[in-house]
Nucleic acid binder design. Structure first.
Lengths: 164, 164
DNA sequence: TAACAATTATAGCCATGGCTAACAATTAGT
DNA sequence: ACTAATTGTTAGCCATGGCTATAATTGTTA
């Protein structure tokens, strides 16, 4: 019972937890070599990170063996993944960015976004997906603007009407 | 002529450049103590950062004197500021996040966002500001959804119409 | 089962970027 | 002009998180 309660973890440690959770994928545990490959760091970096995480009670790891998340580690990892998914969906679906770049940006931003902004990003996606306005819906108009550099007709017409 | 051409700078160094540019604000140069206060780091941290920046040709600094950006330093700083402004406007105007949190998030994300995503964020703001649809415009609908947790009428009606 | 390959760990280095404590220069007050 | 306060620098510490080189363990296979 000496926990600092709602701790924050470094981007690096969050990356390790996320990678381990993805590798475990429900079933088996993760190997050091797998984590190393996934995060594109060398194995000694993984070993020392895992050591640190295990001292913090986030993973269990026996020498030359598997790496597994503890309940707490899993909780943290799932939260990172939640942030990641929200951001990558936002980039891909709302901003119309290709999947690869969307993932890359999500990977970096997931560590720094505030809880409030995260919730708003999620609301935003919910909203644009739940509000289906056919041809005139928001994503379509936005994409038209992206492609043509000009506003679509609907916007222009109404804009003019307002002005006079 | 030994430059690595389109270098990338660390978040920390970008923060220093940004702070110096803001403090110089066109006219006078910056003092170490000002940078220290603005970034909430101690003065020795500033001294060593400034030393590094001057080795990289981004600032000019004479002992016990002022810190000024070089042309190159100014170029980099302006780019950081551009990213910052785009992001904070996006958070504040598009996601309806209060100014303070918008600034905080922009401060962190400005260092990691990809050029593509940045451009899209800018386009996004341009779009929602340029497409004025009165009561039924996108920001209004989104804010309605934020406040009520329910889609506004326009969305619901059309959504139903589509289904049958 | 002995030896080799693959995997993992350890030791120890390096860069980054904070910090404190102590010292030095500059500026201001009298 | 002298001294005190302010400002800035230096030296040196620490944590983080990479890395290489080398050692240890495990698993496989002849």
């Amino acid at each position: 019972m000496k926990e600092k309660v709602p701790k924050g973890y470094s981007p690096s440690m969050e990356d390790y937890l996320e990678a381990i959770a993805m590798l475990c994928g429900g079933r088996r545990a993760a190997r050091v070599s797998e984590i190393s490959r996934r995060l594109r760091v060398k194995m000694p970096s993984v070993t020392s990170a895992v050591k640190k995480l295990s001292e913090q009670g986030l993973v269990v790891h026996e020498r030359y063996g598997y790496v597994e998340l503890t309940a707490e580690g899993d909780r943290v990892a799932e939260d990172v993944i939640r942030r990641h998914k929200a951001l990558s969906r936002f980039f891909a679906e709302a901003l119309d960015i290709n999947q690869e770049v969307a993932e890359e940006d999500a990977c970096k931003m997931e560590h720094v976004i505030s809880p409030l902004s995260l919730e708003r990003v999620i609301k935003f996606i919910e909203f644009i997906e739940a509000c289906p306005l056919g041809e005139t819906n928001f994503p379509n108009r936005y994409k038209y603007y992206l492609e043509h550099g000009e506003l679509p007709e609907e916007c222009l017409e109404r804009g003019l009407r307002e002005k006079e």
